[in-house]
């Protein structure tokens, strides 16, 4: 009996061990040496399983920096800053023409960036900034979180409601997205254009459940509100669940306006169905723009420098189309007319 038991245990262990490398190495597939005429690019990125945003970002990099487009690109995906730095040093040794970095940690990069500079490697940062002297990199292409927040607040204030009583659900406190998206609401409040009825957070994991609790607390405390400003789609969904359970109408013909961020396809379908009201893009697709810079350089144009902000859009129930959902959305598409309850 005991022996049998042990055998089962060992089998379980082996099965799990067999699975682990498949998962760990699936993301880091690398191939072939450089061929003549291809532009060598090294990409240091975070792992795709970090978020739906990152999954779309990694895929976008792979699609744009392909052999077909004239690139010999390698991508390293890790959430560990020291591993990222080691990978960047490897790319510099390999003699890449361009080094693209989305850093896990904003500090600790000075030496690598300097050695890239002395080796003549052009460095672009994407999605995330690094705390360093601007002369250490060529340009950074990032989302303008403050602009995203302003877009949302401007949309809201154009809705013609008699008053705006907002439940603000923040993301991870102190993160760039939270600071930028909150700033617009706080500014509008200080200007007297809206009032914040409840100010909560989904915590470090931008948690759907926490967001739901924030709204439930406001409802059971008998607060009057007509706007949910959730700083990502998951938290907006949690907030809407709380409204639905309490029988409070929302969306296009409802009492409470729902604003989400990030352009998840399920969120866009909710907007399309009038279940939510507005969603603001946070684009994970920086590759095409960076590629256009590189191609333009080949024809003699100058590279941009400093911080460059991506152009991002927003949709409401009037402006959303299937095309936008297919082209700009991230994560799985539940299909037309499907709402997440």
């Amino acid at each position: 009996m005991k022996k049998q038991f042990r055998i089962i245990g060992v089998l379980c262990l082996l099965a799990m061990l067999a699975l682990t490398p498949a998962v760990v190495f699936a993301a880091g597939a690398k191939e072939g040496a450089a061929k003549g005429g291809l532009i060598k690019v090294g990409i240091v990125n975070l792992p795709p399983e970090e978020s739906g945003y990152r999954q779309a970002n990694v895929e976008d990099m792979n699609v744009v920096f392909s052999k077909a487009n004239g690139y010999d690109a390698k991508q390293t995906n890790t959430g560990d800053n020291s591993e990222q730095i080691a990978a960047a040093q490897g790319y510099i040794r390999d003699g890449v023409d361009y080094l693209l970095i989305s850093a896990a940690n904003a500090s600790g990069w000075d030496n690598v960036l300097k050695s890239a500079k002395s080796a003549g490697v052009t460095v672009f940062l994407f999605d995330r900034l690094i705390q360093t002297d601007p002369s250490n990199f060529q340009a950074a292409l990032v989302s303008d979180m403050a602009a995203e927040g302003n877009t949302a607040v401007n949309w809201l204030l154009s809705q013609g409601l008699s008053s705006y009583k907002v439940i603000l659900i923040r993301g991870q406190l102190g993160s760039a997205a939270e600071l930028g998206r909150s700033a617009a609401v706080l500014k509008a409040r200080d200007a007297g254009k809206l009032s914040i009825v409840a100010d909560g957070t989904g915590g470090d994991s931008w948690s759907l459940e926490e967001a739901r609790k924030v709204v439930e607390a406001a409802i059971t405390a008998g607060k009057d509100f007509n706007v949910i400003y959730a700083e990502n789609d998951g938290m907006a969904q949690g907030a809407v669940q709380a409204l639905a359970a309490a029988g409070i109408t929302h969306g296009k013909n409802g009492k409470v306006k729902i604003i989400g961020f990030d352009f998840n396809r399920f969120a866009l379908r909710n907007v399309q169905a009038g279940y939510w009201d507005c969603d603001i893009q946070c684009s994970p697709r920086q590759a095409a723009e960076i590629s256009s810079w590189i191609k333009a350089k080949a024809t003699g144009a100058a590279l941009p420098s400093g911080i460059v902000y991506q152009k991002e859009i927003f949709v409401d129930t009037a402006t959303i189309t299937d095309d936008i959902i297919a082209k700009f959305g991230i994560n799985a598409d539940p299909g037309k007319g499907v709402v997440t309850k």
Binding site: E49, G52, D204, S205, S207, G234, Q237, G238, Q241, T340
Partner: peptide, 13 residues
């Protein structure tokens, strides 16, 4: 409850 499987955040911490 969530109606959606978010492998990153479900049951986190």
């Amino acid at each position: 409850k969530a109606g959606r499987h978010d492998s990153v955040n479900i049951l986190k911490f």
